[in-house]
Amino acid sequence: MSRNLFARIGGTAVAVAALSVTMLATSASAGPPPGEDVTPNDVVPLGPYCANGFHCVFLAGLGSARHSYFNSDTNFAGDTFDDGTGVNNYVWSASNSSTGGYESHYYYGANYSGGLVFCVNPGGEVVPSELTDDGIDGNGVGRRDEASSLRLRPGTTISCFN
């Protein structure tokens, strides 16, 4: 089970609060571009949660404890979210703010081993707490709490999320 449930609940609360503020602040923004349906309920902030050029992972929802990667990382062991919690096998959600067209590819094992957990396109986000989870962190089953390494790859995998 998740070892830091309270941190996650707290992080999610922060994310929800920030989302609410942003939605209020942007309610008068310009309409969607032609041919595209952008509904108010779909508004999710990007920039504040993952800085320019970074690939970000979160302990819970967007806006919760974060670790930002600028390059590939072969092993999350030893990396910590900004609340001190270890990153390895505790990635819940992810955001990609690449400035060079790099996809974020997350793997079950270190050194990009064990198969692909999921991948995120430039500008894409996999939004909080809804990746599948079997409740056992790091056991290679499900997608949440499983990632152990990140590889930046040029954008060729069109099935990545955006």
Binding site: V38, N121, G123, G124
Partner: peptide, 8 residues
């Protein structure tokens, strides 16, 4: 089970 977004 999941929610995904991209820039509009």
């Amino acid at each position: 089970r999941m929610r995904v977004s991209g820039p509009a």
